[in-house]
Simulated scan of single mutants.
Amino acid sequence: MTRPPLPHDFQRPVPAFTATSDAVTEGAALSPLQTYEGGNVSPQLGWSGFPSGTRSFAVTCFDPDAPTGSGWWHWVLFDLPADVTELPTGAGSGGFPGLPAGAIHGRNDYGTRDFGGAAPPPGHGPHRYVFTVHALGVEKLGLDADTSAAAISGTLGHFALGRATICATYENR
């Protein structure tokens, strides 16, 4: 079976920079906290080495393996100020501790404006969860929280100066 492409595969290429996390490891399984049943707690994320000229950031989490034909958006956060280089655990969930002023949560595919954890169908096999930090050449995207995740993704692709990703997995056996 061929794996579905990642959303960035359809966008123009941009330089990579570094994303790190104390909760998400490249190629490893997500913690139960980052699952729908385990609490929907957004992971800590940090980033460095982004291109000069970065004026804001966005953070997304996407599951390209969801059986929807279009994947599943778990997290869409944008208009993060350019001086922010880390989000603490939980910044995208609950009371949004540590979420920078002015940042906007777009609606994820659960229909909520926050981080929605992994919840692949039981027995569907392992899914990939692509956490991406987008370095953008604009301070504000000019979008609001009701803009669809797909439209936000397209806009991020247009304004991206660079991307950093961490891809983890989760399987609901």
Rank of each mutant, 00 (worst) to 15 (best):
D63A: 08
D114I: 00
G94D: 07
P126G: 14
L156T: 05
A19H: 05
C167L: 13
T85Q: 12
L33S: 13
T18D: 14
N172I: 02
W47M: 13
N172T: 06
S21T: 09
V14G: 05
G125H: 05
A150T: 12
D109T: 04
T18C: 10
E37A: 12
G123A: 13
C61E: 12
A164P: 10
W73L: 11
G94L: 01
G27E: 10
A19E: 11
H105D: 10
P43A: 13
S21H: 09
H134F: 14
E37M: 07
P4M: 08
V138H: 02
E26A: 13
T165H: 08
V138S: 12
V130T: 13
H134S: 11
P4H: 04
P7D: 09
W47N: 06
R12F: 09
A28V: 05
A16P: 08
W72A: 01
Q11R: 04
A101C: 08
F159I: 00
T85Y: 09
P4E: 09
L156S: 09
L156C: 10
L80F: 04
A145M: 06
G111L: 00
G162M: 07
S148K: 00
F10Y: 15
P7W: 03
P5W: 06
A119N: 15
G95V: 09
L87I: 08
P100N: 06
M1L: 12
G123C: 10
L45H: 01
F57W: 02
F131K: 00
Y36G: 06
A145L: 04
L45S: 10
A119R: 05
A23H: 15
F10P: 01
G142R: 03
A160D: 01
S42D: 13
Y110P: 00
L141T: 07
P126I: 03
L30G: 10
S56D: 09
R107E: 15
D79K: 01
Y129N: 09
R128V: 12
P15Q: 14
V24E: 12
G94P: 00
P122C: 10
G90A: 09
A101I: 05
H8W: 12
Y36K: 05
H8E: 15
S93C: 06
Q11S: 11
S56N: 06
P97W: 01
F159T: 00
H8K: 10
Y36A: 10
A82W: 06
P7C: 12
D22C: 03
F57H: 01
P67D: 08
W75S: 01
Q34L: 11
V59H: 00
L30Y: 10
F131T: 04
P32G: 05
P81W: 04
T85I: 13
S153N: 08
L30R: 02
T2G: 06
G95M: 08
T25F: 15
P15S: 14
L161P: 09
P7M: 09
G49R: 04
G106N: 02
S42L: 11
T68A: 02
P67M: 00
F17V: 14
V14L: 03
A82D: 15
V24G: 14
A29Q: 15
G38D: 09
